[in-house]
Nucleic acid binder design. Structure first.
Lengths: 337, 337
DNA sequence: CGCCACGATGTAACCGCTTTCAGTTCGGCG
DNA sequence: CGCCGAACTGAAAGCGGTTACATCGTGGCG
């Protein structure tokens, strides 16, 4: 493997010049820049990130901490972030805590601190003040997606209002018996996201002076399977069933729709369903939903992290400003029978 | 940030001893090991990976190159690999080529060569001889998942036989008009996976002396949406429709089932569907499938890479031996009407 | 025509750790 | 009681870059 010295030798200049020519820092005459480029090319030289990082303190590598990668939202954000990073010439180091607490532990106590990262992006993770402090002490920028962490730049949608909007849509169609499908259990420890949406739903119900039934607020862990089960159980009760569901994720909405169909109910005839996400499959299910562009959230987080690195501190108050969402009306909602 | 020197100073030993004590390489008395441990703890010392890698040549970091992260198979393998790596104390650097050729380009021409990786795992990617050579020249172990790359350790399932088995299952139930849903377009460039399964299907049909209709072999890019469309089109033709589908992925099988239902057809009454994958949602759809444990494939690849690193070259002929799969009979298949 | 400022380069001091090599210490043994 | 090897430990030489600082020409200007 060619090292910078080989290139310097081949180009007939010093290693300093090679470094400057290749990295673009500092002045180099066009002539030597060209010589260096040619020599490097010829030798198939690629700088050693380790050496470079060690010497300069910059590693062109950012860390992304995700709770899982199996959920639509997470994998889509990841996809968006990965794409943005590769374009910026950065490496992406992925930390998947995967619900396993020991993984989460080691991620924070070790991995992130190993000084190999220029910045870290967290996805729907609630950091304890201690963890924030740990990250802070490393002095690397942190940007969070989907949750408000004190003192940290954040990308997030307005969960409360989104959910309220979803509920209001159903209410305006004439529904009164509206259930809510949330997902908290697993991530409750991590974030109040589930409950922000739940709060929005309750708020809308209150505003419309509709009763909120405890037994119609169910937790399905954001999964299709969970939603299917829960919805089936609720709909199976012939005494009193909701005419509509607000689902905190599209994946759960799919579960709701499938459950309804399996019980011989028509969507939207017998049951209206609204989701939140903008999942690709939504179209296929005719799902009315509130779309959030997850991929762009990932890309935005990367942009923000990069900006912070560039010193461009373009931080206005990071707390202000929600990521935009879009109401997508399709065929899973209609006035109740 | 505390450096190894600070720890040495605090512990009253040399940096060499600190290094040995913390890394476990070389002999250190229990006494000094303890002193070092305590000092390190107190100072919140964490070794600098960059410095360590530079000096030792090992970086405790492996690269994973994936074509996308939005597909069940890919994200599940990723999840498995990530988990195994975190347990091994390794970092995971993710390269998502995402179908974008320019991304793939830069991944191979630069990222992988930056000497920050101890090994690389590729997922369903066909490497050109030149790319293999590039990787080889870096001297790092490469293990591939899902595809045979000459001279490289590979984890893969027996696509041909799996597909044949799926078809045979339908044939044994009495089906004669069996269609095949494959997905090649996007990944065809990368791998013959799609066609290996297609070949298996055709082989089974041939063996049973059943005709293979060209118009019943369709490509849906492994996506649910694609499958939905294609299957809808095929089933919409009242003149002659298949009574069963072999799908090269569960996600496509879901699309097929949804399409059938939307046309008012009963599954399995009017249409039987077999998938390949073992997707979590399979249960919900009652999908008969051939399950491959994707997460374990990821973990296996990691284990193999780690073994190669450990010098344990446990490579018997890497070509031999398929990853095990399991036939899961559920309710989406039955004898034809 | 001499001096100065500025651009282009080279020298060398790190960056923070690993590892070789050369001691030092000790206990055991002849 | 002297010698030897095993067990530890420390000094120092890198690993492959980056960058502050010194050096060296030059063209512009007084």
């Amino acid at each position: 493997m060619a090292s910078i010295k080989d290139v310097a030798l081949a180009a007939g200049v010093s290693v300093a010049t090679v470094s400057r020519a290749l990295s673009g820092h500092g002045k180099v005459s066009e002539a030597s820049r060209e010589k260096v480029r040619r020599a490097a090319e010829e030798l198939g030289y690629v700088v050693s990130y380790n050496a470079s990082s060690l010497a300069s303190g910059r590693s062109r590598n950012i860390g992304l901490v995700v709770p899982s990668v199996a959920r639509w939202y997470f994998s889509t954000v990841l996809e968006g972030a990965a794409s943005a990073l590769i374009d910026a010439g950065y490496d992406l180091t992925l930390y998947n805590t995967s619900g396993q607490d020991r993984h989460r532990q080691s991620v924070f106590s070790e991995l992130l601190l190993r000084k190999r990262l220029d910045a870290v992006i967290t996805l729907t993770l609630k950091l304890s003040p201690q963890e924030v402090q740990q990250l802070d002490s490393v002095g690397k920028p942190v940007v969070a997606i989907g949750g408000l962490i004190p003192g940290i730049a954040t990308i997030r949608v307005d969960d409360f209002n989104i959910a309220a909007l979803a509920a209001e849509h159903l209410i305006s169609l004439g529904h009164r018996d509206i259930a809510f499908l949330g997902g908290t259990e697993e991530f409750e420890v991590d974030f109040k996201l589930g409950s922000a949406r739940e709060d929005g739903y309750e708020y809308a119900m209150d505003q419309a002076e509709l009763p909120v039934r405890r037994e119609w607020i169910v937790n399905a862990d954001f999964t299709t399977q969970g939603a299917y089960q829960k919805v089936r159980n609720i709909l199976a009760n012939p005494r009193h069933r909701p005419t509509a569901f607000v689902c905190a994720s599209d994946e759960m909405a799919f579960g709701a729709i499938l459950a309804a169909r399996d019980l011989g109910l028509d969507v939207p005839g017998d049951l209206s369903v609204v989701g939140i996400d903008g999942h690709e499959l939504g179209e296929l299910f005719g799902l009315t939903t509130i779309a959030q562009n997850a991929a762009r959230q990932g890309a935005s987080a990367v942009a923000k992290a990069l900006a912070l690195l560039g010193g461009t501190e373009l931080e206005r108050d990071p707390t202000v400003g929600f990521f935009p969402t879009e109401f997508v009306a399709r065929s899973s909602t209609s006035p109740p029978a």
